[in-house]
Design a binder for these strands. Structure first.
Length: 213
DNA sequence: CTCCAGGAAACAG
DNA sequence: CTGTTTCATGGA
């Protein structure tokens, strides 16, 4: 199995994940930039389940604060209270305050210069908010590359290169593939994997030498 | 390398 | 039901 086959198999099984489904009508009505919601979500979801992020986003929405401009001028203690359900609220409030001061499109290095934004979050913002072809590498991606293909790298960028060099450089594919990897890792390739019911068990390196016909 | 930031959901027993 | 682990991580 190669990377492309993995992508298509996951897409066939899970379907399009439709990540960051921004309500364009809502944004237009309230004069909001859809990018802001994606950026805010990318920060709030650091090591946090999306369900909890939704609560925080809902709080921001109800307080008319679902924009970087609003966050920029908001009392930071209020901001902390609104995003509290997403956890790590002290740190995340600081990150949001910092990123809210940059109006134009930030470069990757600019994002990385913000304390609290690492490569994964930076790439997530560039890919899902600015639609630039940066592949997002997370713990799931590393785990799956190791289990399925047997590769283990030391650097983030080596994982990104590994994926990028085996699939077209296409923003939509990058977006979908990352989301599909998350779906696969949560449903089958968990920390303690569900190999018995796994959709890829016959093509996984973990089982190639086991022959448990 | 380990540990911590924090709250809610999922999970194990 | 009560503990424990995990989560769309990053920095000290």
């Amino acid at each position: 199995m190669d990377i492309k086959e993995l992508y298509h198999t996951l897409l066939d099984h899970f379907g399009y994940q439709n990540w960051w489904p921004v309500d364009l009508e809502y944004h237009k009505k309230h004069h909001l930039d859809p990018k802001d919601e994606v950026i805010i979500g990318a920060i709030l979801t650091q090591n946090t389940s999306w369900k909890n992020v939704e609560k925080a986003l809902s709080n921001l929405k109800n307080n008319n604060a679902l924009s970087l401009k609003a966050i920029k001028h908001m009392d930071i203690e209020l901001l902390k209270e609104l995003i509290r359900p997403s956890g790590f609220f002290n740190r995340k409030a600081e990150i949001l305050k910092q990123i809210s001061t940059m109006d134009k499109k930030p470069s990757r290095d600019k994002l990385l210069s913000i304390k609290g934004i690492g490569k994964e979050t930076a790439d997530s913002i560039l890919l899902y908010a600015y639609h630039e072809p940066f592949f997002v590498i997370d713990a799931y991606t590393k785990r799956i590359i190791f289990r399925l293909f047997g590769y283990e790298f030391n650097e983030y960028d080596e994982y990104a290169s590994f994926i990028s060099s085996h699939i077209e450089k296409d923003v939509d594919i990058y977006k979908e593939f990352h989301a599909l990897i998350v779906a696969f890792a949560k449903n089958y390739c968990k920390k303690t994997p569900d190999c018995n019911r796994c959709i890829l068990k016959d093509r996984c390196l973990q089982n190639l030498y086991q022959h448990k016909s």
